[in-house]
Nucleic acid binder design. Structure first.
Length: 594
RNA sequence: GGUUCCGUAGCUCAGUUGGAUAGAGCAACAGCCUUCUAAGCUGUGGGUCGCGCGUUCGAAUCGCGCCGGAAUCACCA
């Protein structure tokens, strides 16, 4: 990396000129701002004191030293405390020659180590996926790919929350009002069907409360004693007792939901190496809690409920087992953590879970530590922000959730409409066109969501948010398609592209594209360190924009100078490749034509 | 009330370990399709980086205090 060389050279300069040792990491190298001449800039201010000279003088003598002692610096200038260094074009040309034909340029070599286990998605089985899940799924998939690109082995896992009162609610409502409705005979997607009865439950529950209140029963009591709620609780108890009928119904409805989820996952392009079911893991959690109780790490109250006392850690007491012996969310998570650690010998267990659960994961880690499990420290909560709507937070009860399937379909429709308006599909077969709409729609959706810093809450306006112009997925896809089209038209053989570029003189725009390409491996590294697909997204947008600016008024195929033509073709090909790689890390496909 | 996070252009967002005149996209306005795909390019306008104080050669970035918003502190998951 050129900036590291420059930093080391600066260290040597400071040592020689001012007889002072400076750590290379403390040297500040940055890209030169556009308005000034130069490629990289050394910040001089830190040396002013030890040099006992003005910033200008200081920059001047360091600049002279750098130029005299390197073969890649062709000039420099000093503005205030900033030393702008001009890098030899040959350096960038060499970079192009060395990397332009590497398929996975920017990806780092595989490391032989224990895997990163990434949990994401983690749906409940009582309702379909919504916009919040989309952000989760896209982040999980993308972070996994970015980790892989950094050489880490990755296992993607999903933890399905398939048991509990929520699914019983759907079951009760289906028993009462379903009339034998199934996905087959209703044409409804399984998850939507089950979700429909979850809503039915809520309606009936509210009505029953109302009825009770009108009979002068206090609101609070009514909420606890509504018959349909009691039915659901009874069903949960039967479930825990392995009641055959309840289990059969539970399995039937859950399978409807899984079939529905699979369709959505497939359309989103996400997948998993292993799926865990809470119904299979909660008992392990229970046993861990009882074990901790026996060892005196946890404590039991007179009502027999079991608690962890975390007050020494600045937190509260946390319930782990109810008085009736049933488990809670935390209990189950203790079990899955252990199971997962043992399944994969994980180096790291990452949980892609919303920031509303930050507290939960703090508590989880502390309890595991208290219970002396060595894997407590491998847990990493990759916390992401909420997706908000213009009218505020999504609330399923108020019907303001944006359904994942509906949203995707709406995007596909928009993509079709937009494409037809532009008259792009005249020579497309209909099947090909359909595929393109899907590609563009998902490109737009994924990019829109992933370009935002994961840790921040984001706003999604269903009617206005998704655009196909500007800083969007389709813009980058379009840039890629144009490059592919250009390369297809070029009559220069691949062999020619494989040959080494001769020294040519490049213009500012070409150089700027080349400099951006040069940064890609660093961006991948950084995105991996910060678990942030947004860095990739912002980078490929910058690259596509810079490329378009070059592409607009610099002829490639029409260039008569053979060397220059080859150089530009190589630049196009390389840019196309990096755009494709970047899009891939976001789960977005790069169409050949559009 | 305690804890955590957030506040940058009309809107949506970037802004690396503190660095130069705070940047994009959308929206608005003005240009560019007989020329490699106009889902594009070029230009114009738009800012008290929530407010104040402090640290520093230098602060959107660090510290403290306010103001405003969100999440969480559940025998929901």
């Amino acid at each position: 990396m050129i900036d590291k060389h420059l930093a080391e050279l600066t260290v040597a300069a400071v040592k020689e000129l001012f007889q002072t040792e400076v750590a290379s990491a403390n040297i500040q190298i940055q890209k030169t701002v556009k308005d000034f001449e130069g490629d990289l800039t050394v910040v001089i201010f830190p040396f002013v004191k030890i040099a006992r000279k003005s910033p200008e003088q200081c920059g001047e003598i360091i600049g002279q030293y750098l130029q005299a002692n390197s073969n890649f610096i062709t000039g420099f200038n000093v503005v205030k405390g900033f030393l702008n260094v001009v890098i030899d074009e040959q350096y960038y040309l060499d970079f192009l020659n060395e990397n332009k034909n590497i398929n996975n340029f920017g990806y780092h070599a595989a490391i032989a180590e224990k895997p990163f286990v990434v949990e994401y998605s983690s749906p409940n089985t009582n309702k379909p996926l919504h916009l919040g899940h989309i952000r989760n799924n896209l982040l999980g998939w993308s972070v996994s790919e970015i980790l892989k690109a950094n050489g880490h082995p990755v296992k993607k896992v999903n933890l399905v929350n398939d048991r509990g009162i929520h699914i019983c609610k759907s079951m009760v409502a289906w028993m009462r009002y379903g009339n034998g409705e199934t996905p087959e005979n209703s044409g409804l997607k399984g998850d939507h069907l089950v979700g429909k009865y979850y809503v039915e439950f809520d309606k009936a529950y509210k009505q029953e409360i109302k009825d009770l209140v009108s009979k002068n029963i206090p609101q609070e009591q009514a909420e606890k004693e509504a018959p349909i709620l009691l039915e659901a609780q009874e069903m949960l108890r039967k479930w825990e007792q392995n009641d055959a009928d309840v289990r059969a119904l539970w399995e039937k409805m859950n399978n409807w939901v899984y079939a529905g989820f699979d369709v959505t996952y497939k359309r989103l392009g996400v997948d998993f190496d292993k799926i865990y079911y809470e119904s299979n893991t909660y008992l392990l959690g229970k046993s861990m809690v009882l074990d901790g109780l026996q060892k005196g790490i946890l404590n039991q109250r007179p009502d027999t409920s079991v608690w962890a006392d975390l007050r020494e850690d600045g937190l509260d007491e946390k319930l782990l087992l109810r008085a009736d012996g049933t488990s809670v969310y935390m209990t189950q998570d203790l079990g899955t953590a252990k199971l997962r650690y043992e399944d994969f010998e994980a180096q790291k267990m990452m949980y892609i879970v919303g920031n509303e659960q930050n507290y939960h994961f703090d508590v989880l880690k502390i309890i595991l530590k208290k219970l002396n499990y060595p894997f407590a420290d491998t847990i990493e909560h990759v916390s992401y922000g909420m997706v908000e709507l213009p009218e505020g937070k999504m609330k399923s009860r108020e019907g303001t959730v944006v359904d994942a399937d509906d949203l995707i379909q709406e995007m596909v429709n928009t993509a079709r409409q937009k494409t037809e308006e532009l008259g792009k599909i005249d020579n497309f077969e209909s099947e090909e066109a359909q595929k393109l709409y899907e590609t563009l729609a998902l490109g737009a959706l994924k990019y829109f969501i992933l370009k935002v810093d994961p840790t921040k809450n984001m706003l999604f306006n269903p009617h206005e948010s998704i655009d196909f112009n500007g800083n969007t997925g389709p813009f980058i896809q379009y840039t890629h398609a144009r490059i592919r089209s250009l390369l297809n038209k070029s009559d220069i053989e691949t062999e020619v592209l494989n040959t080494k570029m001769q020294a040519i003189s490049m213009n500012e725009k070409e150089k700027s594209v080349l400099k951006l390409l040069h940064d890609f491996p660093q961006i991948v590294r950084q995105a991996g360190d910060l678990y942030s697909p947004a860095l990739i997204a912002n980078y490929i947008f910058e690259l596509a924009k810079e490329f378009n600016s070059f592409y607009q008024d610099t002829p490639v195929l029409r260039e008569e100078n053979e060397e220059l033509r080859k150089f530009r073709l190589a630049l196009c090909a390389f840019t196309g490749q990096v755009l494709k790689s970047g899009l891939h890390l976001l789960g977005i496909s790069a169409p050949e034509k559009m």
